[in-house]
Design a protein around this nucleic acid. Structure first.
Lengths: 224, 224
DNA sequence: CAAATATAAAAGTATTACTATCAATATTAT
DNA sequence: ATAATATTGATAGTAATACTTTTATATTTG
């Protein structure tokens, strides 16, 4: 589990929230609150009240709520990456491997692991609703240079490599990979708020849509 | 040109910005400023100063900057829809028609029409960087009910219908359409800020990527 | 037990996102 | 031309946000 934090840039926090009870409470409660009230309405003052702590104490862990969102996102992608690497490890067939990766990536996080202070089910919802806001900013280039998006970028690249392994001739592997990442979050969002803009529903999952898309798009090369 | 405003929900503004010089200046300058400083830093106070008017006067046109963003987005999608309908009108071949639609949709807005107060080139940049923020909110369901996203939804549906005309057996036409809409904006964003996450660059356009994707995904039915 | 460290409480600042009031100008109607 | 009306501008005010600073109080550690 420690390894999950691997890749979370140290500049995202002033003091490691995993290093104290207060830090863990900040993470735990911020996930719940951002999900409930949305990122815009969420403030450190409200968070402080909710965990019976003080605004100023939270500022000793995170510079601002934007950095906290980047931290939560990094944690999420690191967690997904771990699950993806674990689930695809040792699969010899490139096609099956890719399909497994997309399964991890696009499947709804349903079971609540709940063995840490981090609720992955709710964190997944936050990522669906708020992740774009973490990079659609004027500071994105500077923050990218600082390495705040490394975990996400590494994951998209992993998928692109799996795509290339299946069809080395496909000319847009990295665009397809980033489309699946962004598109998966988007289809879940549409399912909830704009059902008329997606074919995904209770019986059709984003996994099916994207698996089908991959099948149609890639030419499986014969085993050599 | 008047027809462009068709579909812009009247509840998005308190007073029609097209009905006065001040209103037009608000639209013109807000596009420039949101592009320059980003939506978060943009305020009505700054806008007022920039156009030598007053904060309170701007509030007589728009309730808040969120509604202004929704207005600009509606204008943009209405403009694109007009261009798309115009460009595809009368094309008898379904495949060519679909390809033309995707061309309009994904091609970079390069030429500055500049015959109104609205700079479409810059507005396109705003849509790439800020559009998601207009619906990734806690109020999205209420605002959707109010009809603030109608133009966009109509456009996605138009594309889905063209997809169905080409391949009536394809099971995910509306998901594919929404993927292309969102994905096109996303690929442009990546090209600028995360070039390692896209195959699009100076020589490869999102149009080529999505045209290829459509070609691979849809089975063209023989003319009957 | 003393020293260091972490947290809490309180107060303060600048800015945002408005609202309200009133005066100054245009515009329009008679 | 004048009165009535609508529009805009200027000013002030409020509550909340996004912090920073200072001081006091716990808690931990050596």
């Amino acid at each position: 589990m420690q390894s999950l934090r691997m890749g979370i840039n140290e500049k995202l926090y002033l003091k490691d929230p995993e290093s104290s009870d207060l830090g863990k409470k900040i993470i735990e409660q911020s996930i719940l609150m951002i999900n409930e009230m949305g990122f815009e309405s969420f403030t450190f003052k409200k968070l402080g009240t909710a965990i019976s702590s003080n605004e100023s104490s939270i500022y000793r862990y995170f510079e601002n709520k934007h950095k906290l969102l980047l931290y939560l996102a990094s944690w999420y992608w690191g967690w997904l990456e771990y699950r993806m690497v674990f689930a695809t490890y040792g699969i010899p067939d490139d096609e099956r491997k890719l399909r497994k990766a997309i399964e991890i990536l696009t499947q709804n996080v349903e079971e609540d692991n709940a063995f840490t202070h981090i609720n992955e089910v709710i964190l997944n919802k936050i990522v669906i609703n708020e992740y774009s806001k973490s990079y659609l900013t004027k500071e994105v280039d500077k923050e990218n240079k600082e390495g705040y998006f490394l975990v996400y970028k590494r994951m998209v690249n992993r998928l692109a490599e799996m795509i290339m392994a299946v069809d080395g001739d496909y000319p847009y592997p990295i665009s397809l990979a980033s489309t699946i990442f962004e598109g998966s979050l988007h289809q879940y969002f549409l399912q909830e708020h704009f059902p008329a803009l997606t074919n995904c529903n209770e019986s059709v999952t984003p996994l099916e849509y994207f698996t089908d898309l991959i099948n149609r798009t890639l030419n499986v090369k014969p085993n050599d």
